[in-house]
């Protein structure tokens, strides 16, 4: 099955939807692996929010695409090159510092996007954004608190967090390479980069972190369906049952 998205607004939203679902999948991996039980609950809360958000976005997308496909079709039957998730959310749970850094970067960026979607003319999108912002505020606070806790806590936690930040940093670049599909929907994409820069500077200073060097890289853009090698494995797990039993209803 080859599933393509034709509507331009849907093409914008699918990037968000895919990223939320893939990030949800990464957080779901942490089930029973957290540093203590309370954090297991916190992370699965975040995962639930992400899957819920992804599903709501997919419903809107399905609508825009005249219901040619269902949210489950989009999730379980698109292949690697038909996914439009950010590479940063595909990165693995190497340790808890990676989980936190990835979450923090994601939350700062996606929160800004939803803030701008709050004013969208489509009532469904505006309504969803209002609900999502409450969730993301909570996720952002949790991630930010942990950035500072790990940054200040011990030498080891600082060093692990710095390593995670250093490795993930290159994947932040493509987030701001907005194209016309983005700018047709977002009021002010420059604003997103400004907020990001301020946030990062503040948190890094509080958490005793060094900001990695910025330089232009050529990384094949997620907007063209280019991914890290991790996505294939993530989809292989996630899509296994519907692909193994294509005639079954689940």
């Amino acid at each position: 099955m080859s599933i393509t998205i034709k509507n331009e607004l849907a093409q914008f939203l699918i990037r968000l939807a895919d990223s939320e679902i893939i990030l949800g999948q990464r957080l779901a991996e942490m089930c029973s692996k957290g540093p203590f039980l309370e954090e297991d609950i916190a992370l699965s809360n975040l995962a639930l929010d992400l899957f819920g958000r992804g599903e709501e976005l997919l419903k809107i997308i399905a609508d825009l695409e005249d219901n040619a496909y269902t949210p489950d079709d989009y999730t379980f039957r698109r292949n690697e090159r038909e996914y439009f998730s950010y590479k940063i959310v595909e990165q693995p749970n190497n340790d808890f510092a990676w989980v936190i850094a990835r979450q923090y970067f994601h939350d700062v960026y996606v929160r800004e996007i939803f803030r701008q979607l709050l004013n969208h003319s489509d009532q469904q999108i505006a309504g969803l954004s209002e609900k999502v912002l409450k969730e993301i505020d909570y996720s952002y606070l949790h991630a930010r608190d942990w950035m500072v806790r790990l940054g200040i806590g011990t030498e080891e936690s600082n060093s692990r967090l710095q390593k995670a930040v250093d490795s993930l940093w290159k994947y932040s670049e493509e987030l701001f390479a907005f194209d016309q599909i983005d700018t047709n929907v977002l009021d002010d994409s420059d604003q997103i980069k400004t907020v990001w820069d301020n946030e990062i500077d503040q948190v890094f200073s509080e958490a005793n972190l060094e900001k990695p060097e910025e330089f232009k890289r050529h990384i094949l853009d997620f907007r063209q369906g280019f991914h890290s090698e991790y996505l294939g494995m993530i989809l292989a797990d996630m899509q296994y049952l519907p692909r193994a039993y294509p005639d079954a209803q689940w």
Binding site: F36, E38, I41, A42, N45, L141, D145, R149
Partner: peptide, 20 residues
């Protein structure tokens, strides 16, 4: 009751456990 290391974590953990 809940376990937490600091105040911010305590409030978040309490919310996650008792107001799900």
């Amino acid at each position: 009751s809940i376990h937490a290391y600091d105040k911010k974590m305590a409030v978040q953990n309490a919310r996650d456990l008792y107001t799900r």
